[in-house]
Amino acid sequence: MEEFFGSKKYKTANAKVSESCPSNIALIKYWGKYENQIPANPSISYTLSQCKTNTEIEFLADEKFSVQTFLSSTEEKKFAEKIEKYFKNIEAFLPWILKGKYIIRTENTFPHSSGIASSASGFGAIAKCLMEVDDLFCGKAEEDFKLKKASFLARLGSGSACRSLYNGLVVWGETKEVEASSDLFAVAFPSKDIHSIFKNFNDWVLLIHEGEKSVSSTVGHGLMTTNPYAERRFQEAHENFSTLKEILKVGDLKRFIQLVEHEALTLHAMMMMSEPAFILMKTGTLAVINKIWDFRKETDLPLFFTLDAGANVHLLFPRNKDEDKIKEFIIKELLQHTQNNGVVKDVMRF
């Protein structure tokens, strides 16, 4: 898209900016991608509220291009190498970006390896910072353009990061179901088309496994290129999007639960049917899922789950008169399946 190319004149100077960006959890999963972080199917996510990355970027204009990164005050040289590569990849869109030294200080409000996408919030925060620096060097851009370009830049660092730039339900990937949707950046799902029941949700993340995942998301996406069920999966995602749009409009919570859980299990099924195959769930993951199903059958209370590409479980439930009963069940029956009684409590950000 030509409007994203860095054609404006600029003048650099020392600068220091800071931004925050939350993580997000996908309901319809993006799994499989093409070159330049183009998704193989559209996805939709909830943006979280408390789980976020806070980032400060200091730009020193008179020094040779380099990147120095600190995570919670500890220098991370491997991350610096990753960011250097990222900056080189986006020079066409920010022509000043290789003209100085960067000192990046970042910290997450949630634990590492928690099943919360730190790459999404991390690259989202960096992209927002870069747009602030771009304002200083090239003149202030319109807010809508700035947000769209930040989402575009974040995508080139981590695909799902493009969704973290918006509140509420967020769409990434071109679909006929959402006007102006794009493979290049995310857009907010129209709030007017979302029933009020879906606008006030809890997301409690059970930390079943706090170590590194057995396979990275990058490798997992790559395995879809040879997965014999990939094309059917991509088609199903489009079909589920159409179904979800109707569900969101009418407020059908039971069908919402069914679809979200199906999407989570499909993601893991794709990994189990890849070559090589990976089983990302742990014993505790399965125990939690079965207990959720039993609890819902016995009480008819709307506690349900989604999963990322790992063992940890995102527990989703509305913030309403029944939530105390659900929280009591979680604490009494589900925490025992975590590694260290670990749970991260958050809510959706609208």
Rank of each mutant, 00 (worst) to 15 (best):
70 F>P: 09
147 L>K: 14
272 M>E: 09
153 L>N: 04
25 I>P: 01
223 L>V: 10
172 W>H: 04
147 L>E: 05
77 K>R: 13
260 V>P: 07
139 G>P: 10
321 K>L: 15
150 A>Q: 08
244 L>Q: 08
62 D>Y: 04
212 E>H: 03
299 T>W: 06
240 N>Y: 07
248 L>C: 11
113 S>W: 00
188 A>K: 12
52 K>G: 00
219 V>G: 02
236 E>F: 07
237 A>L: 03
169 L>V: 11
78 K>I: 00
66 S>D: 15
277 A>C: 13
46 Y>I: 04
175 T>G: 05
221 H>G: 14
242 S>H: 08
119 S>A: 03
340 N>T: 14
95 P>Y: 06
242 S>F: 08
294 D>G: 01
128 K>M: 14
142 E>D: 15
282 K>F: 00
154 A>P: 02
209 H>F: 01
196 S>H: 13
220 G>E: 12
111 P>Y: 02
133 V>R: 05
199 K>I: 12
290 N>T: 03
184 L>Q: 13
227 N>E: 15
261 E>H: 00
216 S>F: 00
259 L>N: 01
281 M>C: 04
200 N>F: 03
265 L>N: 12
339 Q>I: 10
41 N>M: 13
209 H>Y: 08
25 I>A: 14
328 E>S: 14
263 E>M: 08
174 E>F: 11
24 N>C: 05
77 K>M: 14
41 N>R: 07
272 M>H: 01
15 A>P: 04
274 S>K: 01
80 A>N: 08
340 N>C: 08
80 A>R: 00
113 S>A: 01
22 P>K: 09
48 L>Q: 03
31 W>P: 06
77 K>D: 15
254 K>E: 15
268 H>R: 09
281 M>G: 05
1 M>F: 11
330 I>T: 05
129 C>Q: 06
304 F>L: 07
309 A>G: 02
331 I>C: 12
224 M>F: 07
72 S>D: 15
27 L>A: 10
341 N>Y: 08
266 T>M: 14
65 F>A: 06
26 A>G: 14
163 R>L: 15
341 N>M: 04
